[in-house]
Design a binder for these strands. Structure first.
Ligand SMILES: [Zn+2]
Ligand SMILES: [Zn+2]
Ligand SMILES: [Zn+2]
Ligand SMILES: [Zn+2]
Ligand SMILES: [Zn+2]
Ligand SMILES: [Zn+2]
Length: 1102
DNA sequence: GAGTTTGAAACT
DNA sequence: CAGTTTCAAACTC
């Protein structure tokens, strides 16, 4: 906000970024009070840097900021109102992260103002010539306004903004997070487009995306996306600066906003140029309406990579190369352009997608996808822009993508949203895909992604239909900065291809990732897909699409070191080195990432994105009825996604790996929905046969059917309702009220439930981020797994070996949050013995071949080794209470998070927004998500506070993975197969290690099972890990609970056991929540990243 | 497909 | 919060 307000928006933003990066503190504030954060922002080096980069920006930015602010501010509240809470998060996250990112960069295409009204349309304004900047605006008119400012020199930044302030506000307002983003966006937009834009925006719905492209002095291409976050901006700038200087660091920002109906989604990726290079990826999405409550979902994902910059660069370079392949020429310039072009190509989709990618070099590509033709325009513009940029040979490239989605956003807060956005785009996407050309590799993947996208799209579509009234926006930003070092080409490629390029990069990687993802990360969520996909295995590879999203992320990651981080986060996927990046990406891709990717992709290579989704979908193969899915999903998706996502999405996930931390990702939560979405997407994307298959699978998977007799499908007893979807024809329910026509009633019911339990609609599965550690191994193992059930189970007789057990059903191992007796969950026992679990798993598998197979496929078993550590954790976990407290990890959230988180839940649980911010933000979100779930929501809230602090710390945790997804598979029916499988790893270690334990191991259950929603929790553990104390406490808690814990005899446990409370009292890490504590612990771990985070957390706890 | 089991959700 | 009831899925036959 302030950022926007800040006189020198751009600079400020940069400052933010800087602030963000380094001074996490700022972030913290941000979260809680998004606006507040601004101050820091200004300062941030970024801003200065940015400013230096492009004078233009500054001026523009300011204005934009102002507007933005205005817009933002106003909008936010509204947003909050409903689901809103989430929005806050985003904002928080965003803010935190955002800090004013773009600062200098921001471009505003003037046109916006005028056209804005049209915004809805979308468009990319690539302003054709970015350089031109505004001029293009007119072109863009449509929705998005894009400004391009040229930034300073070398680093050219492209900022894209999508602002839909109005959208945000108006429509949705839905998710707070979104809002925040939106706000920022708006601000920027406003700034850019000026008020007018705002006005337009306000109308809401309209989607407009503003693209800014700023070109560095040379290239003068900068594109900033506002959408998201300042953070990003800030981040990017920093990166740029940093990168530019030395090694080209890569920063990626993605923000996607989709407004469809009311929903907005923002995704931004930002890498931090911080010393440790970090990449942030933020994604936020919000819907004005949730299917139910009309929530919004937004999430931010931030990923920071610490890896050596070099690596990042390398990757980035690689990425670049890839992109280059696609579009060498453009490369230098703004990838965004490329992206746009793609988009345009693609289609002209209505949707706009902006993708900003900033590499260290500062490459940003913006993609905007809007449903409207805008895209095409955008493309053109972009292309032109690109050209210009390229010409400029900007080192940096930024791409942003905006996508507007209609209603659906909800569904996929993150991924879904993206997907949705994409979905809206779907058509376009397909087109896009087509356009994607470049990405051959992608193709396959892309296809998958597309498929996924399609599904989502479908949902979206449905939702849209349903919720036409509402405007959901889809806004996606994606920005990547490529280090200067890297040849312009890279940047160019990146940009040009934007998403495509990214994807392309990714693709290769992605493929891996995809695979990995599918297997691991996504796998988790999507396990289904993976498994199936895997089998597809080979096929998969080709189809790494999943990568798509992942790609984006990945790309981002790739671009920066982020990838690595990501990977880690993802865990499963992470296995791959690159994959690590990939992994992250994957996660993202799958889950939210997919969204992101999609968004980004959309613009660029929607396909890719889709592909990611698709993959998952495929898993779901089972799905039979795409239609059904659609229906349910459609409505649901939004809902579900919304709900799920929302919550999740609301949570912004930040992944930042400070150096090591890895990032995490958030993923999306909605596994289930996502799946469906994916399916839909798939369908769309798939375009052809494969898609259909996938679709079916997806559909089937995603679709849930209920047989409610007495609940009218308005209670959580109803799976459909619980999933946030409408009942479909397939349902055998009686007296069903859960139909689109009863939206009001549904909303009310949802609210009531939420009032009771804010997390009620949050994804059931949370990823704990395992550690970010990145241990490739883990990841490799696939297991990223740190997924766990948000509430845990209370199984008494089923031994957690049947679907009666929610954990098992979700394909995740039991965690400390579980109170099960005699747990033998094959995915992982509370105890934590992953290994055991695995073994068991095998056994179980024997019992249920499927599982095993899947697991085996996944290669999960490998993961085991990791487990060891797990045990401790597990032990801890054992105690439910403890668990909760422990769980908190996820809670961690940084202060920001807390704030944001709370809102979400509070606001509208159902429609939480997912957002991913940098680590901190991510964590927050994740935490939020995860947290919420875990503890009671209530606690959650409280915790949130505490948590929030924590979040900061956890980047690791953050990782969310996108697992989610899924559900379909499980649903499918089989009882036994928990889909997941994998898993196992579980916690054990993490816990043992520290609080994190969870993340560590846990399996990552994909969640094929039904649950669908998976949220990644931040590793609390990670944080915990860092803090011994925390750990202890956790342990204690666990001990309390648990017997199992006992088992684990790990010394730690003992320690831990002592006092949960201690922990609490200690306050050190954990925070206490209602009874539960969270150990935010983690502070330690993250600390680096975020000072604030730590502080916050600690504080909170204390 | 009917009936039983199960554990979450809802309610008190 | 705990205890009880209600509910619908999961499971069994
Ligand atoms: Zn029902
Ligand atoms: Zn139903
Ligand atoms: Zn029904
Ligand atoms: Zn259980
Ligand atoms: Zn359990
Ligand atoms: Zn269990």
């Amino acid at each position: 906000m302030r950022v926007g307000t800040s006189p020198q928006p751009e600079e400020d933003r940069l400052g933010f970024g800087a602030a963000m990066d380094s001074p996490e503190a700022t972030k913290v504030p941000v979260s809680s009070s998004a606006s507040v954060s601004s101050p820091p922002v200004k300062d941030s080096p970024f801003s200065s840097y940015a400013s230096s980069l492009s004078p233009i920006q500054c001026s523009n930015s300011r204005q934009g900021l102002r507007v933005y602010r205005d817009l933002n501010f106003p909008s936010p509240e509204p947003v909050f109102t409903s689901p809103h809470i989430t929005l806050p998060r985003k904002s928080d996250t965003v803010r935190s992260s955002l800090p004013l990112p773009l600062v200098g960069v921001e471009k505003f295409s003037v046109q916006d103002s005028n056209d804005r009204t049209t915004l809805p349309g979308n468009m990319l304004r690539s302003s054709a010539s970015m350089a031109q900047l505004n001029p293009s605006n007119n072109e863009f008119e449509g929705n998005p306004t894009s400004k391009h400012e040229t930034c300073g020199a070398s680093s050219s930044c492209v900022d894209v903004f999508l602002s839909d302030p109005s959208d945000v506000c108006d429509n949705s307002s839905a998710s707070p997070v979104c809002v925040s983003l939106d706000q920022e966006m708006h601000e920027r937009i406003q700034g850019i487009s000026t008020n007018s834009s705002e006005n337009q925006i306000e109308p809401c719905r309209e989607k407009f995306a503003c693209l800014k492209s700023v070109t560095a002095p040379s290239a003068s291409d900068l594109v900033d996306e506002f959408i998201a976050d300042p953070v990003e901006h800030s981040g990017t700038p920093d990166l740029q600066s940093k990168q530019g200087a030395v090694v080209p660091q890569v920063v990626c920002n993605d923000s996607v906003c989709s407004q469809e109906m009311n929903t907005q989604i923002d995704v931004s990726l930002v890498e931090k140029s911080l010393p440790s290079q970090t990449t942030e990826y933020m994604i936020s999405s919000s819907k004005a309406k949730d299917s139910f409550s009309g929530d919004e979902a937004s999430f931010l994902v931030n990923i920071s990579l610490d890896d050596g910059e070099d690596k990042i660069f390398d990757e980035a370079n690689e990425a670049v190369e890839v992109s280059l392949h696609e579009q060498p020429a453009s490369i230098t310039n703004n990838s965004s352009i490329d992206c746009h072009s793609f988009e345009a190509e693609a289609g002209a989709l209505d949707q706009q997608t902006k993708v900003n990618i900033v590499d260290q070099n500062n490459v940003s590509s913006v993609l905007n996808d809007k449903a409207n033709n805008d895209i095409s325009l955008a493309k053109t513009t972009i292309a032109s822009y690109f050209c210009h940029n390229v010409r400029d040979a900007r080192p940096q490239i930024s791409a942003q993508g905006l996508g507007e989605l209609n209603s659906t956003p909800q569904c996929l807060p993150e991924s879904l949203q993206n997907a949705q956005a994409v979905g809206d785009l779907d058509v376009s996407r397909e087109k896009v895909l087509l356009s994607a050309d470049n990405q051959i590799p992608f193709d396959e993947d892309s296809t998958q992604h597309q498929r996924g996208m399609r599904k989502r799209l479908q949902f979206e579509a449905v939702e849209k239909q349903k919720t036409n009234a509402e405007c959901s926006r889809f806004y996606t930003k994606f920005s990547c900065d490529i280090s200067c070092a890297e040849p312009p080409q890279t940047s160019v490629d990146m940009d040009t291809s934007d998403s495509c390029h990214l994807e392309s990069f990714e693709i290769p990687r992605m493929k891996k990732d995809c695979q990995a993802v599918s297997q691991s990360g996504p796998c988790k969520l999507i396990a289904k897909v993976d498994s199936s996909g895997q089998k597809k295995g080979g096929s998969f590879v080709p189809g790494p699409r999943p990568c798509g999203i992942g790609l984006h992320l990945n790309s981002i990651g790739n671009i920066g070191n982020n990838c690595c981080t990501v990977v880690q986060l993802l865990g499963k996927d992470s296995c791959m080195e690159d994959s690590s990046f990939l992994g992250d990406d994957d996660k993202l891709s799958q889950g939210s990432s997919s969204e992101l990717a999609s968004t980004g992709l959309i613009g660029k290579n929607p396909v890719t994105l889709t592909a990611n989704f698709e993959k998952p979908i495929p898993h779901s193969v089972g799905e039979d009825t795409a239609d059904k899915h659609l229906e349910n999903h459609v409505m649901e998706p939004p809902l579900s996604s919304v709900s799920f996502q929302t919550p999740q999405s609301e949570k912004a996930i930040q992944c930042s790996m400070q150096s090591k931390l890895t990032d995490r990702y958030v993923t999306p939560c909605n596994l289930k929905r996502p799946l469906p979405v994916d399916d839909s997407k798939v369908n769309l994307s798939s375009q052809s046969s494969p898609r259909k298959k996938r679709r079916k699978a997806v559909d089937t998977e995603s679709q849930k059917r209920c047989s409610c007799k007495r609940s009218k499908c308005l209670k959580l007893y109803c799976d459909c309702f619980a999933a946030g979807t409408f009942c479909s024809e397939l349902c055998g329910c009686l007296q069903c009220v859960n139909k689109p026509e009863n939206e009001d009633t549904i909303r009310e019911a949802k609210q009531q439930i939420e009032s009771r339990n804010p997390l009620a609609f949050a994804p059931k599965v949370v990823l704990c981020a395992s550690d970010p550690p990145k241990d490739n191994e883990e990841n490799m193992g696939k297991t990223p797994s740190s997924a766990r059930h948000k509430r845990g189970c209370n199984c008494k007789k089923s031994l957690c070996l049947k679907k009666y057990c929610e954990c098992y059903q979700a394909g995740v191992g039991c965690s400390f949050g579980c109170r099960c007796e005699g747990c033998k969950n094959t995915f992982g026992r509370r105890d934590g013995c992953i290994e055991i679990i695995e073994i068991e798993h095998k056994k179980s598998s024997e019992q249920s071949s499927e599982r095993d197979s899947s697991a085996e496929k996944l290669g999960i078993s490998e993961m085991k080794s990791r487990l060891t550590p797990l045990t401790p954790l597990i032990q801890v976990a054992s105690g439910v209470d403890v668990a909760k407290s422990l769980v908190p990890c996820s809670y961690y959230t940084s202060p920001e998070t807390s704030a944001s988180a709370l809102p979400y839940y509070e606001g509208s649980p159902g429609s939480p927004v997912n957002s991913i911010n940098k680590c901190a933000s991510i964590k927050d979100r994740d935490d939020a998500l995860s947290i919420i779930p875990y503890d009671s929501e209530l606690d959650f809230d409280i915790k949130v506070d505490t948590l929030s602090p924590g979040w900061d710390g956890f980047p690791d945790i953050c990782n969310l993975s996108p697992l989610a997804i899924t559900d379909g598979a499980p649903a499918s029916s089989k009882t036994k197969e928990p889909k997941v499988l994998q898993t196992r790893l579980f916690q054990g270690n993490s816990l043992a290690l520290g609080s994190l334990g969870w993340r560590c191991s846990p399996v990552t259950p994909l969640q094929q099972f039904g649950e669908s929603k998976i949220v990644v929790e931040p590793d609390t553990g990670s944080g915990l890990n860092k803090n011994p104390e925390d750990d202890t406490p956790e342990i204690l808690k666990e001990t309390c609970l648990p017997m199992e814990s006992v088992k684990t005899s790990s010394p730690k446990q003992k320690r831990i056991s002592p006092p949960k409370r201690l922990m609490e009292s200690r306050s050190s890490s954990s925070t206490i929540r209602n009874g539960r504590k969270f150990i935010l612990q983690s502070v330690p771990s993250f600390p680096p990243l975020t000072p604030y985070s730590n502080n916050s957390r600690d504080r909170g706890t204390t």
